[in-house]
């Protein structure tokens, strides 16, 4: 068979993909749905992120509602993690990464020269894809942030912070008898909940979660998802996920990213039941991704 024949064959076999390329001009349009909300915790406008010469995020504007969970979904390399990491300036540590646009946390510009990234990260905590507890005891893992920022200095205060955070993270009953043992000795799911406890120990206003369940088994994932739902009562959460089911289960709003552009944002139920944009529909019905 010739190459041309091969191309036409695969195009015939995957009509969805063919349609997506046709729809590429739609990417230049504005975001579909409701990217902005009233009384948002964080507001972003005209966000562009570059890695060296390569642009990873194109003109994204999105609000993150107070005490809400917003899920960011999209195929690999769509920029959802990059966008998330821009929200607490974790990208500052990446060599060659440049961020432009407006980022407001309660009307405060987080990229303003007077904003200290260290102070910002105490307010906007982060949970990572792979559980990354420190090679220290469970207690020290949770107490670390509180000690660091001087939130608690006396042992009794620290004990309170540790117990409270572990309880909120649903881990207290499992580890209360072995707080001195290394956090790295826990199971994957417990480690991730420990990382969440560590993040909430400093009482952040926003918690960013970068695919927090992708390294966990289904049971551990279910525990973490329950936890996210509980935490949403008190915290504002932005979660990046590969799993559409997870986004559907835990989030209030869902943002769909594609090739560095924000295609559609809407209430989660709306996105999954009646997507407005053809790309969103193609993705959630599994035609690519």
């Amino acid at each position: 068979m010739t190459t041309a024949a091969l191309d036409s064959a695969s195009a015939a076999a995957a009509p969805g993909r063919h349609r997506v390329t046709e729809l590429s001009e739609l990417l230049t349009q504005r975001t579909t749905g409701k990217p902005f909300v009233d009384a948002a915790k964080m507001r972003t406008r005209n966000v562009n992120v570059y890695y060296g010469e390569k642009q990873a995020i194109f003109d994204v504007g999105l609000d993150i509602g107070r005490n809400q969970v917003i899920a960011m979904i999209g195929p690999s390399g769509c920029g959802k993690s990059t966008f998330l990491r821009a929200l607490n300036r974790m990208n500052d540590t990446v060599v060659g990464c440049r961020v432009t646009g407006e980022f407001l946390l309660d009307d405060e510009d987080i990229y303003a020269p007077k904003m200290d990234p260290v102070a910002l990260r105490a307010r906007v905590g982060m949970v990572f894809q792979k559980p990354n507890p420190f090679p220290k005891s469970i207690y020290d893992n949770v107490a670390y942030g509180a000690k660091l920022h001087g939130l608690a200095s006396r042992r009794i205060e620290l004990d309170e912070v540790v117990e409270g955070s572990l309880r909120k993270a649903g881990l207290w009953e499992e580890v209360k008898d072995r707080l001195v043992q290394p956090g790295t000795g826990l199971s994957g799911g417990q480690q991730q909940r420990l990382c969440i406890a560590r993040a909430i120990a400093i009482n952040p206003e926003v918690i960013l979660m970068d695919e927090p369940c992708s390294a966990l088994d289904p049971i551990a994932t279910a525990r973490v998802e329950e936890l996210i739902a509980e935490l949403a009562e008190n915290y504002t959460i932005a979660i990046v996920t590969h799993s559409m089911q997870q986004a559907a289960r835990v989030s209030h709003r869902t943002a769909y990213f594609h090739l560095g552009k924000l295609i559609e944002v809407n209430d989660t139920q709306m996105v999954f039941t009646s997507p407005q944009h053809e790309l969103t529909e193609a993705y959630i019905t599994g035609r690519f991704g």
């Binding site: 974790m90 260290v118 990260r121 990572f128 792979k130 990354n132 420190f134 942030g145 660091l148 400093i202």
Partner: peptide
């Protein structure tokens, strides 16, 4: 030293010096 440890410390608001002295150096 795995970058995930650095990110974890930065994520809870450690300064670069604290990351180095508290986590990178011991490891």
């Amino acid at each position: 030293v795995p970058p995930s440890i650095r990110e974890a410390a930065l994520g809870v608001g450690a300064s670069r010096m604290q990351v180095v002295l508290g986590h990178v150096l011991p490891l």
